[in-house]
């Protein structure tokens, strides 16, 4: 999906595939593959927040992990534009060549408990990247970690404490401080607020937005909670069984979805207002999410789609560009009149 905006994208993902082999038996023979990410393309412009949404197993986390190169993608390109450099394909680099880019592309994890090594103090956790990249050491390191803690709203006196002394929200702040340590440009936030209580979630969302403004950060925000996504993102990509089914500006996607799956997702979100109960039309999906190791023919969504027709069963819809900056993978995107958030709400 080429960038059509005048600004050059910071990151462009082209035809990304990530397959995991399924191994069985004593000799671990490969008996099949899970197509966790299946031909995914998108781009992120500097300073924007792009969200990947979808239900569990849709490949959003795997996509994020390919970009930070926890995984080595099966195929496809991850083009990153570093400052004053040509675009470079991260998918091709090995661990050594990735090092400079690991400083600029950082990750925030979902689970604030498992993502911090309980055996290291906050100074060691947050300062690790500064230390291994020889940016700072000794008292300078301490000073930098302290100011990072202050930046994310923690008291710098906490520097010698261990993670077990902190609550979930505070740990997530520590995780954010770690991500900020090396002045990153792109942050992949993988369900960064999903494990948090609503009041803590609000604190962290505010913090992320403040940091974005202040440091001109670019976010790839991976989430399953549509209200959170609606709140934080500029553009949203909806994923279903390893594929992007729709990508649009947040406002457009929520008010006027073009893919039936997006419509169903929006309809399923509980509205925090009892007066909206039983108003509008409910769309309830039948059946189960398709198995990514054995997806259905044609459009992956057709067995559950209320608008499916014969064509959907045979022909796989390509991701098409529709009006401006909107992309959708549905044969009938133009014909269907789907309901957005407001219409349902």
């Amino acid at each position: 999906m080429p960038g059509d905006s005048s600004i050059e994208p910071l990151l462009e993902v082209r035809n990304l595939h990530m397959q995991f082999p399924i191994r069985r038996g004593a000799f671990r023979r490969t008996v099949g593959v899970v197509k966790a990410v299946n031909d995914v393309s998108f781009h992120i412009r500097p300073g924007e927040t792009l969200s990947l949404v979808g239900e569990s197993g849709c490949g959003k986390t795997t996509t994020g992990r390919c970009i930070v190169r926890v995984y080595e993608p099966t195929s496809g390109q991850i083009l990153y534009k570093a400052e004053e450099q040509e675009r470079i394909d991260l998918a091709e680099l090995d661990n050594r060549d990735l090092r400079p880019f690991r400083r600029e592309i950082r990750m925030i994890f979902q689970d604030p408990f498992s993502s911090l090594n309980p055996r290291l103090s906050i100074l060691q956790v947050v300062g690790e990247s500064l230390k291994v990249n020889r940016v700072a050491s000794g008292s300078e390191l301490e000073g930098r970690v302290a100011s990072l803690l202050k930046r994310v709203g923690l008291r710098p006196e906490y520097i010698r404490r261990y993670p077990h002394a902190f609550s979930g929200g505070e740990r997530q702040r520590i995780g954010i401080a770690r991500a900020l340590a090396l002045n990153p440009r792109l942050i992949v936030a993988d369900e960064a607020v999903s494990a948090l209580d609503v009041s803590v979630q609000a604190q962290i969302l505010n913090l992320l937005q403040d940091l974005q403004e202040e440091l001109n950060l670019t976010y790839l925000f991976i989430a399953h909670d549509l209200s959170v996504v609606e709140h934080i993102s500029h553009r949203v990509a909806v994923m279903y069984v390893g594929k992007i089914v729709e990508l649009a500006a947040t406002e457009d996607l929520f008010t006027n979805p073009l893919h039936p799956y997006t419509e169903a997702l929006l309809s399923a979100v509980p509205k925090p207002d009892p007066r909206l109960r039983n108003k509008g039309v409910r769309i309830r999906l039948e059946g189960e999410v398709a198995d990514p190791s054995n997806p259905p023919s044609g459009c992956y969504f057709h067995p559950r789609c209320p608008y499916a027709e014969e064509r959907c069963r045979h022909e796989e819809p390509a991701v098409r560009k529709i009006e401006g900056d909107r992309w959708v993978a549905c044969h009938f995107a133009e014909e269907l009149d789907l309901r957005g958030f407001e219409a349902i709400g």
Partner: peptide, 17 residues
């Protein structure tokens, strides 16, 4: 006030305890 909701879009900051 701390739940993100559709009509809070104008005011991008969430209330937090």
């Amino acid at each position: 006030q701390s739940i993100p909701r559709y009509d809070s879009r104008e005011n991008r900051r969430l209330y937090s305890i």
